[in-house]
Amino acid sequence: MPGWTHKTDETVQHMSDFVLPLPKHETAVAVHGAAVHEHAPASSLSRNRVGLWWFILSECFLFLAFISARYYLLGLERPAELNQALGLGLSLLLLVSSLTAYRAELGAQHGDRRRLLRNTATTILLGLVFLMGVGYEWSEALVHFPPSEAFGTVFFSLTGLHAFHVLSGVVLLALVYWNARRGRYDSGSIWGVEASVKYWHFVDVAWVFIYPTLYLVR
């Protein structure tokens, strides 16, 4: 074998005994009489679902990096000036929005366009109120712990990173609303709704870790 070169085609033609012709439509089971693993390539919906989960895992690492920066720089230290009432209120707001997002998805699953629209609109509204709350929180924070100090640095970067994700979630839900109004989910292919809602849940869960990191640990 070492003497063989791939340069001439005749040599290779002699090797056609390495590649056996097989009768047409022959199945693997018939060749071997053995069972083939019964899995077919996945549908595009299940591919999308798997992809979304991997994406969410990836995003977790981004938040993890900034959360660990908080503990690395400050340990468990936190300033007394944090607006605890506002922090708690914003957290509850976001949890409620997860519920409405869930109901929007239910509406889409049942082909109930009005329920989908109503709950999507509510979720978007709650998201926007959350963002305004963060904006108000920032105006207070600028006075007590500006971003040029260690706590301000982790506070503004973590809430900012999260607010950016909320904003992108709002944009996604707005697209869902736009498409739902035009009846694009009535046919039952509701991946757009499912993905946006899952993303929204993820952004909420991220906050569930960020909130204690900034407001509660001591």
């Binding site: 085609d9 056996l20 012709p21 097989l22 009768p23």
Partner: peptide, 10 residues
């Protein structure tokens, strides 16, 4: 060079 038809590698 190979048969264009169905093939299996062995």
């Amino acid at each position: 060079a190979e048969p264009a038809g169905p093939a299996l590698a062995a």
